[in-house]
Design a protein around this nucleic acid. Sequence first.
DNA 1: GCGACAG
DNA 2: ATCTTGTCGC
Length: 234
Amino acid sequence: MNNEEKQSLSIEIEKFKTIQTFLSDKISLKNGRAVERIQFCAGVDVAYWEEAGVEWGVCSIVVIDYDTKVVVDKTHSIGKITVPYIPGYLAFRELPLVLDAAKKLSKTPDLYMFDGNGYLHPRHMGIATHASFFLNKPTIGIAKSYFKIDNVDVTIPKNKTGSYEDIVIGNEVYGRVLRSHQDVKPIFISCGNYINLQATTKIVLHLINEESRIPIPVRLADLETKRIRRRLVE
DNA sequence: GCGACAG
DNA sequence: ATCTTGTCGC
């Protein structure tokens, strides 16, 4: 990347930051829509590959029934990726494909779970929260590693399934470190929007099975995304 | 300049 | 995220 490209990228980042700040004022974590009743729960993930110097991505959305955990719908969308990965600005990179895939769903999810953060973000605008304003549904963020904010470290929860520790930054709870399985690295969950942290924790734990430390819908979307890529690349 | 850095 | 070999364990 040359200096001119670096310059235009930093201008883009400033615009991204402005958008995040604008949206973050509209977060409503006290809205109870999610805790009332969930039937359809969606998992979202994106995989990437490169072809002739062009970066491509595929977004998969897998919808399961909350009680039976049976897959009831799934869609995907494929497209060129134009925005680079910049920590803190993941939504601007992945959201176009996500929204494209969401449009194709025949069942309307009551909740979306994302691979990444939600409220647990420097401006409370991780991809899960950002996406909620376009999907108009409750969202949850599921991260497999900790995105450090203000140099605050997390407390490691006890080695027991369901144990968690709040992630507190400046007297505010941003999210939770959750042990989804004993003897397995914990995950980092946070509200996206239109849902509170208590409901978020309950839903995440409900959708964990023996196969994975992340919730079923996100895991299925991850598998799906790689299956589609393999079909395209080979 | 160096290290850190969701996916 | 992706690139990768072997390896440990159910």
